[in-house]
């Protein structure tokens, strides 16, 4: 199990108040902003930027950059690893 991905799921549930969901409900490749996935909206996307800074010390100054990174848990984890390695 990838602990970064599990942590991300917990953080997303907490930061976005998705109290009706548990970590097990979120698949690694589920589309976060698709109604068939988590159905997040544009404000959630901005809240994910706050999350990245709060939990991972990563600053994102252009919301457009988040669009690719926030597609799924998989892409978020890859983005965090890339930023940390840089």
């Amino acid at each position: 199990m990838d602990s970064l991905k599990e942590d991300l799921k917990k953080q997303i549930i907490e930061q976005l108040n998705l109290e009706d969901l548990t970590v097990a409900d979120i698949a690694d490749d589920a589309l976060l902003f698709n109604d068939q996935g988590l159905g997040l909206d544009s404000i959630d996307a901005l809240e994910l930027i706050v999350l990245l800074e709060k939990y991972h010390g990563i600053q994102l100054t252009n919301p457009e950059e988040g669009k690719e990174a926030f597609k799924s848990i998989d892409t978020m984890a890859a983005y965090i690893r890339k930023r940390k390695a840089a």
């Binding site: 976005l16 108040n17 404000i43 901005l46 809240e47 706050v50 800074e53 709060k54």
Partner: peptide
Amino acid sequence: GGSPSPSLFV
């Protein structure tokens, strides 16, 4: 120390 929360602000 925290950042302003957009989802609270709205």
